[in-house]
Design a binder for these strands. Structure first.
Lengths: 251, 251
DNA sequence: CGGGCTCTTGATACGTGTCAATGTTGGTGG
DNA sequence: CCACCAACATTGACACGTATCAAGAGCCCG
């Protein structure tokens, strides 16, 4: 059994938020910072394998990832699993549940993860008091939609080799812009089982596909994860290129 | 070549919007109605096959579907196409382009379609002046995300028969709640080529899969489209059920 | 009347899934 | 410190689902 996530008091004040300092995130006004600071109710520590949000639940909270990797997924009754997307620092999770009735997907931590906890019931006041933050939420939702569009294109129309290349290049790029992978640490902490469930392939075929990428020197499987050696090469195979990284909001 | 969409002056005032009267949509306050009425810049008539929005463009507008069916899609360089979702009356399109830099997908009309045209540049004032409408936009984006999640699960993990059943049941349900299909007119106006490109299957295999559903009496192919004879039967095959229809926003 | 879509069907090829066995690694407890 | 175990990764053989190729029928519209 996975351990329960630990709900802790606030350790990192929004005023000293380490993510806030990074230049890829839109800076807050003083008033916005104060509002978000009050909006934040605590922090959550989640170990690898912990289910942070579960499909069908009516969560009273929503979260922003402060550190760590995680993923969103759905499962069919017989256990078939589809991973929908991955989350990295700066991503918000649980907005669906906050805005609709209940969660339609689950979220699990891949690495030790820290989440900021927000009160769902105060979400509407965010829109009332700070139009800019409301716009940011729509922005975040629209970006998630853009990513899902690309994934759907991938799973629906790309070959296994293209799909795997796209996904690895995508994960590398997401890690890069969120600061969680760097030129020195180009490690993506997922198992081949996760990849398979994202690509819509079997584990065995995923393994054989990854071997082709390894043989070409594009990746290296190590330490329960994947080193991206040549992101550009992966993008070429996939016929995909990351959009230019622009300043993005983050709540 | 597809004809150009025709940009017309306003014919239907928001005050007499036929959709607004339907009970499945959240009612507006007087102030909201007035704002949206000013937000609306015109109407667009699109014939079947018309591309309403094109990937890569920076559109100055966003749209709400007043009547008709359409679909969103992406294509790879070599022409492989993936249909991402369908649009029905009450759906907003172009929000991605309005909120990000440029459109990441295209939209095409399936039937004669009427769209309300809104000014993208005034989107932010919507958030400033009417928090409720801003919240609605986030709601709409979150719902689109929920749908894409289910599609991704379907394409990634369901068999061809399950996938086709899910998609047809889904389309029937969307048509039903938007009032565009009724108990008497249960017709979904798509070709098998559209279905194939949504399901991630070839046209030939899609045809053979649909034949199985026809043989079981669940559907009937007629008039360039599909009659849904037994939605419940389709849902059973897919292992999927529509969420309870709740009041939804619509701008 | 012809030409272009759409739909249909059979034969065959190929990509991916399934099964089975083995190797590797890291953690746990004696 | 070693033995054991549970995940995870790897590989080959074979089965099956889906793609591709090909041909033809029906239909609408110019």
């Amino acid at each position: 059994m996975a351990p329960e996530p630990r709900h802790n008091p606030i350790r990192v004040s929004c005023y000293e938020c380490p993510l806030r300092r990074m230049k890829q995130f839109r800076p807050f006004t003083e008033a916005e910072l104060e509002f978000v600071s009050n909006f934040k109710r605590g922090e959550l520590q989640a170990d690898p394998g912990t289910t942070v949000l579960v499909e069908g639940a009516r969560s009273a909270h929503l979260y922003t990832v402060l550190s760590g990797w995680g993923f969103r997924y759905k499962i069919l009754e017989d256990g078939r699993r589809q991973i929908l997307n991955y989350v990295v620092p700066g991503d918000m999770i649980g907005l669906q549940g906050a805005v609709m009735a209940e969660m339609q997907h689950s979220v699990e931590a891949l690495t030790p993860t820290t989440l900021c906890v927000f009160e769902r019931s105060r979400l509407f006041s965010l829109f009332e008091r700070h139009a800019g933050l409301g716009f940011d939420l729509t922005w975040l939702a629209a970006r998630e939609e853009t990513i899902l569009d690309e994934h759907l294109l991938s799973v629906g129309r790309r070959s296994a080799l293209e799909r795997a290349s796209y996904l690895l290049a995508f994960l590398f790029e997401r890690g890069r812009v969120s600061g969680i992978v760097t030129e020195e640490r180009r490690h993506v902490p997922i198992t081949q089982s996760h990849l398979a469930d994202t690509l819509g392939l079997s584990i065995v075929h995923t393994n054989k596909t990854l071997k082709k990428l390894s043989d070409r020197g594009l990746i290296l499987w190590r330490d329960r994860g994947c080193e991206i050696l040549n992101a550009r090469g992966l993008e070429d195979i996939a016929g995909w290129a990351p959009g230019e990284a622009r300043i993005r909001p983050f709540i």
